[in-house]
C-alpha cells in the first residue's frame, strides 16, 4: 500500500503583475506517493514551476490546501515551512544551483551544514559514492561537468533523508545521454530510499522513466 506524502487540493495561484492578475494554477488536485516517480509535463508557461513551488513549500497557494504527510501545512509561516523543507523535501534544479565556492562534499552537506550532526560528512561522502562521484569529492563545481554537477545536486537533495524529491527540468541543461543517466540515477534512488519523486519537464524523454504522468495545460490538469 502506498502512502501519499504530498497532496494539493484545489490549489489556485494568482500573481499580480501590474494591473493584471495572472492565474498560474486554476484549481489543481495532485498527490504523490512514496516509491513513485511522477512527471508533470506541459508547455512552457503552463504553471509547472508554480505547481512544484507549491509542492516544495516554497510558496503558498492563493486558494486550496497543501498536505504534507497528512498534515495541513497551508497556513504555515515561512519559518515553519523552512523547517519542513529542511527535513522533508529535496530539490534538484534545472541550473544545478551548486555553490561555486564549496567542494562537491560541502555542497552535499549544505542543507545540514547548520545542524550539529557529526556524521554529516560521512553521509555526504556515501551519497556522492552512490551517484558515482567518489573520485570527485573535493572538486568545486567549475571542475565538474554538467552531468556531474547535477549528480552532486541529487546527492545534496538526499542529505536530509527527505520523503520527497522535487526536480524542475532536471535534464533541461544536459544532453540526451547525460539526461538519461541522471534519470536512471533518480529511478534507482527512488526505490532505494523509498521516496516520492516529482519531476517537471517539457521533455518527452522523462516520461519513459515515470510511473505516472500528469499533464498541465494552462494551469489545469488535463487528461
Amino acid at each position: 500500500m502506498s502512502t501519499s506524502v504530498i497532496e494539493l487540493d484545489g490549489v489556485v495561484k494568482r500573481y499580480q503583475s501590474g494591473e493584471e492578475t495572472i492565474e498560474a494554477l486554476k484549481g489543481v488536485d495532485f498527490t504523490a506517493n512514496r516509491g513513485e516517480m511522477v512527471t508533470v509535463i506541459g508547455p512552457s508557461g503552463s504553471g509547472k514551476s508554480t505547481m512544484l513551488n507549491m509542492i516544495g513549500l516554497l510558496d503558498t497557494p492563493s486558494e486550496g490546501s497543501v498536505h504534507l504527510d497528512g498534515r495541513d501545512v497551508t497556513d504555515f509561516s515561512e519559518d515553519e515551512l523552512t523547517e519542513e523543507r529542511r527535513s522533508g523535501i529535496g530539490f534538484v534544479f534545472q541550473a544545478f544551483h551548486l555553490l561555486p565556492m564549496l567542494t562537491a562534499t560541502e555542497n552535499v552537506e549544505l542543507p545540514s551544514m547548520w545542524d550539529t550532526d557529526v556524521d554529516r560528512r560521512d553521509r555526504a561522502i556515501d551519497l556522492l559514492g552512490r551517484v558515482g562521484l567518489s573520485d570527485r569529492l573535493s572538486h568545486t563545481p567549475d571542475q565538474l561537468s554538467g552531468g556531474q554537477q547535477q549528480r552532486v545536486a541529487i546527492a545534496r537533495a538526499l542529505i536530509n533523508e527527505p520523503d520527497i524529491l522535487l526536480a524542475d527540468e532536471p535534464t533541461g541543461n544536459l544532453d540526451q545521454d547525460t539526461g538519461a543517466t541522471i534519470l536512471d540515477e533518480l529511478t534507482r534512488l527512488k526505490e532505494e530510499e523509498d521516496i516520492a519523486i516529482v519531476a517537471v519537464t517539457h521533455d518527452e524523454q522523462l516520461v519513459e522513466y515515470a510511473d505516472r504522468e500528469v499533464n498541465l495545460v494552462d494551469g489545469e490538469i488535463g487528461e
Binding site: 529535496g90 555553490l99 547548520w114
Partner: peptide, 16 residues
C-alpha cells in the same frame, strides 16, 4: 540573490 534563494529553498533558516 539566486544562490541565497537556493540556501533558503534547501531549508537554511532566515537567521542562518
Amino acid at each position: 540573490r539566486g544562490e541565497i534563494g537556493v540556501l533558503r529553498a534547501v531549508g537554511i533558516r532566515r537567521g542562518e
